[in-house]
Write a protein that binds this DNA or RNA. Structure first.
Lengths: 210, 210
DNA sequence: CGTTCTAGATTGAACGTTCATTCTATGTTA
DNA sequence: TAACATAGAATGAACGTTCAATCTAGAACG
């Protein structure tokens, strides 16, 4: 009975990837359902239908619906953390920042992405486990953004204390994340004009003295 | 059968107010439940318990759960429309704007208010009827804000075209609404520092040339 | 090469629960 | 008594989850 205990993962890499594919299939289907019905409005039946498998089979890959939600949240946030880490690692911070901000505006104005993001935030407002995941990811992103701001402003000869930089980062984050709300409230907004105005506000904020 | 058709509201004022009290009771209870469980997670049983009445009795005042949601959304947005209308009507626009912005920052950073607002936006992202209500209210607010910006900037000798003013209003709205997301993602943020930074960014945006 | 064995993948029906809504009965007031 | 306020049980649908059964593909073996 003890003899098999040594093998850490009984599955060969081949079958591991098979399972990974299935997991991705489920998460993609779930994300789409969550977007259109919300975390609690989307049923396992609907998710499984969209994923092309039976309801029961979902439970071979996730313990329960909560676990699917957590995985969706994790996957979405990992992408965000990566983007901000890349920014911080880049050599020409200012150029990268401008380029990234354009991309970031577009991303936050995309209706589908905005829906899922809002679904996640709203769930974080009532589900402590989701709140924990969201907050942990946010700490990473905001630390990156704050340090990036420090470098960018030092290049302009300005030296701010931590509190100022932190608040500045919060406002910039608020602008981006607020765009997701705007695109829901007012779907017909002028995307290009808005993107230009966001860049203008950001540029001013970064380059103006304290 | 035709004879009673003339009376627009068959209830005397007294009973109308009694019913109004009950309606408010239900809406208050519902708002609290929606905050902690979400629109779909909150059950009629829980709402009725908190409102101090039976489940069945709820249906004397609202056709169904959807109607309660719509009423909550309507009530929340009416307050917002009123605030912006007041701003536009005030004589010293700039002073009022600064004062209002402080109040507005505080309001959007309040966790309870933020939760309900996010719940509403998220519901608007998937429920067309709620989206309609939200969008209608937003049009009022944004029209007010745009005209207010026009006046404020003309006082500084700047004349912008409509597109510029509209985009500027969108960014300002995004900042405020984004704060509600920030307070969820990062509950421990420095409220006072953030409020000061928001005012600084707004002031710069309003007073800088196009 | 053909057969048997086996373990994981997959299914769909069944279960118990919870929900929104309806219905019926009982107070309450004017 | 007529009309309204209120309660709480009844209803049927939908949901998350479980489970026993079937399928599939490859390993073991002769």
């Amino acid at each position: 009975m003890d003899m098999t205990a040594d093998a850490p993962s009984p599955l060969p890499a081949d079958e591991g990837s098979r399972a990974a594919v299935r997991r991705t299939q489920i998460l993609d289907a779930a994300a789409q359902c969550f977007r259109s019905c919300g975390f609690h409005g989307a049923s396992i039946a609907r998710i499984s239908r969209l994923a092309g498998m039976s309801t029961g089979h979902i439970y071979h890959y996730f313990d329960n619906k909560e676990a699917i939600i957590a995985a969706i949240v994790q996957r979405d946030l990992e992408r965000m953390v990566t983007v901000w880490a890349e920014l911080r690692a880049s050599r020409d911070v200012r150029e990268t920042m401008i380029a990234l901000s354009a991309e970031c505006v577009g991303d936050h104005l995309d209706a589908d992405a905005a829906k899922l993001r809002l679904e996640i935030i709203t769930e974080a407002a009532r589900n402590p486990e989701v709140a924990r995941i969201v907050h942990a990811a946010d700490c990473c992103c905001m630390a990156s953004l704050t340090e990036t701001l420090r470098i960018a402003r030092q290049m302009n000869g300005m030296h701010d204390d931590d509190a100022t930089l932190t608040s500045m980062a919060e406002v910039l984050a608020a602008i981006f994340e607020g765009l997701s709300i705007r695109t829901i409230r007012n779907p017909g907004l002028d995307r290009e004009g808005l993107a230009a105005m966001v860049q203008r506000v950001i540029r001013q904020t970064i380059s103006s003295p304290a």
